[in-house]
């Protein structure tokens, strides 16, 4: 099995990141197909890691998953400390309103989508993209959940809620059934172009063009109704991981493609709730153990891996192999955070 290490993206990763962005669907606006924007993303991450931060603000953290033996980048994942820091973070709230007339004996619920900024200020997980060669086994967990360990290790840098937008339904030609029935009326442009603007322009055009009045779902064509809360095959894997982590779906959907927006209280995320700090004890390779996600406590030098380790919770000690110490760039006696896989 290949050993993969998650670490912050460096400027030298730009070509690899650009390649990954180019291979992602258009809805992944957090990985725009623009070298300048990707460069900015790495720069912002570097600045955030170097900053002395006590609350959650405009920071963002951009990680890459690297294959250790040839230093090839095989995945990306990011955290935005506070969604909508400089402008509202829009979603549709999935609601039902009751329409009842006692006199007529009628009582039914009508499904509406209401524009809201409820999730503004929550910490946002984005940019999860993994080389398909690694989609089996524990690798996806490493890429996604190492972020939760990072959040747990630097809790004061993040909000009390964590959200993530799942890509919604969209065919290979860039037709998203929800967009075609809803967004197109207001924006007058195709879905891929809207997503493109969203990635490379500010988001203020969204405020100008989004419907102010709630959308009555029963008025929409069937394809659009059925797309609400659905998840694009591209996002199924990351979504599964988040649901296992305790994220909830159903309440919010994306304003463009109506893909599910999942959310959890930070403290209730499984990795955060079950993580522990431990002192490292070196041991020779080959010893048995349980599968753990382990990360060091550095910011610019953050590293996370998956490994078999022995954790003594009473003593607060974890036994790690030499190879692990090297990957994590820690020495015996140092501290790590870990969570069971």
């Amino acid at each position: 099995m290949d050993r993969l290490v998650l670490r912050p993206a460096a400027y030298s990763d730009l070509p690899a990141v650009e390649r990954i962005a180019g291979a992602s669907p258009v809805g992944v606006t957090s990985l725009p197909r623009s070298r300048d924007k990707l460069f900015d993303k790495i720069a912002s991450s570097q600045a955030s890691l170097a900053a002395d931060v006590s609350g959650c603000g405009e920071e963002s953290y951009f990680f890459v998953l690297e294959r250790e033996h040839d230093r090839e980048v095989v995945g990306t994942a990011a955290i935005v400390a506070s969604a909508g820091f400089s402008e509202p973070f829009y979603n549709y709230r999935n609601e039902t309103v009751t329409h009842a007339s006692r006199e007529l004996g009628v009582h039914h619920r009508v499904h509406v989508l209401t524009l809201c900024h409820d999730l503004t200020g929550a910490t946002l997980l984005t940019s999860f993209v993994l080389d398909p060669a690694y989609k089996h086994g524990d690798y996806p967990d490493l890429l996604s959940r190492a972020r939760m360990l990072f959040i747990a290790a630097h809790r004061q840098r993040f909000a009390d809620h964590v959200v993530s937008e799942m890509l919604g339904l969209c065919d290979d030609d860039g037709h998203a059934p929800f967009w075609d029935s809803v967004g197109r009326h207001f924006f007058g442009i195709d879905y891929p172009l809207a997503e493109f603007y969203c990635g490379v322009k500010g988001r203020s055009f969204i405020a100008e063009l989004l419907p102010q009045h709630p959308i009555y779902v029963p008025l929409l064509p069937r394809e659009a109704q059925e797309a609400i809360g659905q998840i694009h095959p591209f996002s199924r894997l990351p979504c599964e991981i988040l649901l296992r982590e305790g994220f909830e779906t159903e309440r919010y959907v994306d304003i463009f493609d109506a893909g599910a927006v999942v959310q959890a209280r930070t403290e209730e995320i499984r990795t955060v709730a079950t993580h522990a700090r431990a002192t490292v004890v070196g041991h020779p390779p080959g010893a048995d153990g349980t599968r753990y996600l382990v990360a060091n406590l550095d910011l610019p030098g953050f590293r996370a891996i998956l490994t078999d380790a022995a954790f003594d919770s009473e003593r607060g000690e974890v036994w790690l192999a030499e190879a692990d110490l090297k990957s994590l760039n820690v020495t015996a006696g140092g501290s790590v955070v870990l969570a069971p896989l």
């Binding site: 009842a100 007339s101 007529l104 009628v106 009326h185 419907p211 009045h213 709630p214 008025l219």
Partner: peptide, 17 residues
């Protein structure tokens, strides 16, 4: 009175009709 009870309370975009 049933009209108030059952009609959509929010404005409707005719684009959806």
């Amino acid at each position: 009175s049933f009209i108030a009870e059952l009609m959509p309370q929010h404005p409707v975009y005719t684009a959806f009709l």
